[in-house]
Design a binder for these strands. Structure first.
Lengths: 232, 232
DNA sequence: CACACCCAAATTGTCGACAATAAAAACAAT
DNA sequence: ATTGTTTTTATTGTCGACAATTTGGGTGTG
């Protein structure tokens, strides 16, 4: 499955299962953003004891999907515009660096695979004839490959293991279904070119611009929505 | 206390206390890097039940000080040279961006405070007359202020709440007692200048160079040590 | 001697109950 | 009626015990 977190290990324990279910529920908004989490209630819903539910909550906390205050309880993270912009700023920094490292550390084979992937995406795009085909799968697939290509475990863990859960959550809840399809595609192509040229500096620059453009696109949309809301 | 994590909330629960004690023990090497953690043993040592010890372990996991495998157990993170370099690469990306944001978002008052802090450090330096005074406290204090100055909660949490525990651990275990004293000091001064000029681009560039220089300094030391080891 | 298999011991995962804390409700006083 | 206080209720934190899994050793066989 393309969308899956590439660093996810096989699920073994029941807490793992509860974690996965809750993760999906939170990302997709079935458990509302900002809502309080009642341990007894959810334990009953998922048919587990409070201990294992708390274990699941701890993992959700690790990927910044829930926040806990001592003696008060857990809340699902609040999706705010500020939070979204902060997330993109952070992505810009981390993925930019990951891209630079990828240009330095990816094997020739890995680069070939990425180029092939892009070609497949191009074919799909032709098939769907200009329709904004370039949906999450393709986009996430590309970004994951670059991040993994950095061969930097610290970066990989931070981005794939933590940030991207939030990214997916925001995409779901704000209905951001991978905008800028064609532009994003050509930007990806240029980034891959820089990587295969082993030009780390350019690769980082392009990746940062790519993410920054996405952020600005969001900012514009938000501003537009607020204008529309004001004109009612 | 200067060295303290600025994002740390007041300790209330017993798991918090165990977490803090273990954190310090791990950072300072009293619990050996790479060693396996026996839940029953440590629970006895800290006089708590396994549940609360596991709660403490979960928090240690959140700041990347221990790693856990299902049905196998927890290990203290392994301090390797590769890990150290990866950590600095990540710091370069995150703190660079934080510095850029600080230049954009810090209040004039915050900037003044930071300038005052640097002056105090300068005085201390004169007192100790050129001795490599510029120890951890001053260095961490400066970096923390910049990070907090970004006013970006995502960056603040990632760096202060997670990365810096590892940074302190490596500093302790590799005996890196803030080298490059005088150089680091003047670099800090230039960075503050860029921030007060509201020059985000330059601020980021300087911070990245500052951290990269620190990383290269480490790489050289390592290479040197390996040479010495080889000549025995 | 090597290898596979099985068994025993120890460790981790899960559970339900109790204690400590915070939120909510009821009440009193101005 | 509103504010401040007390009591009640509900939720979270902690504990010890049991179940499931892994690990190490021992035994047997090729």
């Amino acid at each position: 499955m393309l969308l899956q977190n590439p660093t996810k290990q096989t699920v073994v324990t029941t807490a793992d299962k509860v974690f996965e279910q809750m993760q999906q529920a939170i990302v997709e908004g079935d458990i509302a953003s900002g809502s309080k989490i009642s341990e007894p209630e959810l334990a009953k819903r998922y048919q587990v004891s409070r201990s294992t539910l708390r274990e699941a909550l701890n993992r959700l906390e690790k990927c910044h999907l829930v926040e806990r205050k001592a003696n008060v309880g857990s809340r699902v993270v609040d999706c705010t515009i500020e939070g979204l912009l902060e997330l993109y700023i952070t992505r810009e920094a981390l993925e930019g660096m990951a891209c630079r490292q990828a240009a330095m550390n990816m094997s020739d084979d890995e680069i070939k695979h990425m180029q092939n992937m892009l070609s497949e995406h191009a074919n799909k795009e032709q098939l769907k004839a200009g329709v904004a085909y370039y949906q999450e799968e393709g986009d996430l697939d590309f970004h994951y490959k670059v991040i993994l290509g950095s061969h930097n475990q610290q970066l990989i863990n931070l981005i794939c293991g933590q940030l991207y859960h939030l990214v997916r959550m925001y995409r779901c809840q704000f209905g951001m279904h991978s905008p800028r399809a064609s532009k994003a595609f050509s930007e990806h192509a240029h980034i891959i070119q820089a990587i295969s040229d082993r030009d780390g500096e350019l690769a980082e620059l392009l990746m940062r611009r790519h993410i920054a453009a996405s952020r600005k696109n969001i900012e514009n949309k938000i501003a537009q929505q607020q204008l529309e809301a004001a004109s009612n």
